[in-house]
Structures are given as C-alpha cells and as structure tokens.
Amino acid sequence: MSPVETWIAAFLTLCVFSFLYRDNPFYRFAEHLFVGSAAGYLLAVQYQNVILPNVVLPITTGKPTPQTIVLTLIPLMLGLLMVARVSPRFTGPARWAIAFYVGIYSGIAVPGYMQAQIYAQLSDAVKPFAPGWGAVNSALVLIGLLTVLAYFFFSAPHQGLHGVSARVGIWFLMVAFGASFGYTVMARVSLLISRVQFLLRDWLHLIPMS
C-alpha cells in the first residue's frame, strides 16, 4: 500500500474502533461506507465472473449459434425476471425465477447433504478403532455422537436410559460450545492483534517491519 492508502486504511480502522467509546459519526461513516462498498464489490465480481463471460460475451462476440443464443437467453430471462421484482407489478413473474433458483438448490441439497453430511459423518463414526489410546478416543467420539443424537431425539420423552443418554449428550454439547466459543474469541483476538499491528507497524512505524 502507498502511504496515502495506509493513512486512509488507518483512518477507517480508527473510525471503527471509535465505537468502543460509543456510537458516533465517524463509526457511522465507516459503517455506511462498508455497506455500500461491500455491495458494490460483490456486484462487480459477479458481473466480471458470471454475467460478462456467460451472458454478454456469448451473444456479442463471434457468430453465436441458435443453440448458444437459446442457452444464454433462458438464464438471462430468468435473471431479468428476478430483477423485475423491484416493481410490485412484476411480483408474479419474478416468482418463476425464484421457483427455478429454489428448485435447483433443493435438487442439489437432497443428494448433496445425504452424501456429505449424513453418510460421510456416519461412515467416519463407525470406522474400526485405532489401536492403543486412539481406541479410547474413537469410543468417546462414538459415545458422544450417540448421546448427542439421543438428546436431539424428541419423539420419545427423555426418561430412563434415553434420559441418561440425553444428559450425557448435553455435557458433550456444552464442551463443544465452550470449545467453539474459546476458538472464536481467539480468532477475533488474533484479528484485533493484526489491526493493532497494522496501526503500530505500517502506519506509525513504532514497531519494526518483520
């Protein structure tokens, strides 16, 4: 980054940190700038990576065949129907685009989730145990999986053996939530360290460049 860019980045960093004192115009400026630029960036990336090569170029360059034109116009029409949702008059036609999109991702979700989430997790859980201490850990993972699943099974009351399993399942869940919480805190702290490092090293030159 050039010195001017570093100063702008440092100013924006301080604008966001100013929220630690309280809500103020500097923070609101940074917040609104972030919303606008993030939306614009996403739009520009989608234009360059999706719309330009798959919609604009196929029908504007070379000699497009009728098949190319049809295969380009169908998603283009669906896309325009989606944008037409802006006007309340076109809410009805826009439903076709939404229905198509939702249909595609529902169709992907059925085999995709079955394969990646359910079968893959189950097959990993019932793999033969590793020898030594690995077997203890594998057994604990299997017990944890079964007890947490027992906790999530609400078709029968949590009583007797099912109740005991559900209670052990809650313990496993609490450990997992605690681990996730600790992990998230540390990830945020490392981001904080990197921002402070940017301010002290790249902007103020108070600590040497590594």
């Binding site: 079955m114 989430q117 189950l122 850990n137 299997l142 947490v148 399942g169 496993f172 997992a176």
Partner: peptide
Amino acid sequence: LDVPNLAAKRAIAIGVG
C-alpha cells in the same frame, strides 16, 4: 477439539443434514 467437540459437531451435522 478432536474428541468431545468432534462428537457433538458430528451429531449436529447429521441433524442439520
């Protein structure tokens, strides 16, 4: 991370799936 967390996350993943 590798044992109790994995067990709970695995069960959650199955439920989500």
